[in-house]
Amino acid sequence: MWDYTEKVKEHFLHPKNVGEIPNPDLDATVGNITCGDALRLMAKLDKAGRIAEAKFQTFGCASAIASSDALIDLIKGKTLDEAATITNDDIARFLGGLPEAKMHCSVMGMEALQKAIATYRKTPFTLEDEGKIVCRCFGVTDKLIEKVVREHNLRTIEEVTHYTKAGGGCGGCHREIEAILARAHGRAPAQAAPAAPAPRAMTNLQRINRIQEVIASEIRPLLQADGGDIELVDVDATHVQVAFRGHCAYCRVSDVTLKGSVEAKLRELVDPEIVVEDVGDKLDKS
């Protein structure tokens, strides 16, 4: 369900600033059709250097169109220095607020404005030119993410996605966004999770379950590929008794298999203390 203010709906349904300006002084496009939204901003300056006329064209959802229309209302009559101070918050406030997940629409407005001014002044557009692309799905740079994180005191990846779209696609850049968040808040970046050794305080039952799983999903397929098999006989704390089956039962290198793959795998994935014993012979004799 849409959670838009009446003002957003008004600017979406009846935008007053749509159009093109021939030979504009300022002209910038941000976003693209693949990403789902794009905004082209055009403006003409008067002799005093004020924005005399401004228009937009936008591809995107209702809040993208409303944010674009609001942006034009905000910059009209201003000098470029005055316009340069407009932030996405000014756009959102002008519209009586935007849903959290739509804040990126207002950020797109701010980006277009800054890019248009930078292009006019022939200065680098820091948010795009000097940054490194972090989110490849939506082409968002570290500069933009960092700016928005600092301005809005964003704390989570989800918030960053709401404001910039970064991280909203494949999710491959989440670690980099996490690092930017940490940097902005003066924290050490979160350590990558270690390769999850099972906690030592595992109950016997948990350990047994885990051993069964690892044997079923990791070990048996390997042995079965060579015509062998393995059966779990008993678990006593960290002492694991197994029996080789199929080819493994008669294999002369089954000791190597036992220590080299079975025990190593269980130590890696379940508990470093595990000792594995082959009791297949005893079992078959009894």
């Binding site: 849409w2 838009y4 990403c35 789902g36 995107g60 959802c61 799905c137 939506f138 696609g169």
Partner: peptide
């Protein structure tokens, strides 16, 4: 989403596979 919101003004209910309505950004 823009199409749906305009249709909504006429009381017409439909849905979209667009990014803005899919719950993700894609």
């Amino acid at each position: 989403e823009a199409i749906l919101l305009m249709l909504d003004q006429f009381g017409i209910c439909a849905s979209s596979g667009s990014a803005c309505t899919s719950g993700s950004l894609e």
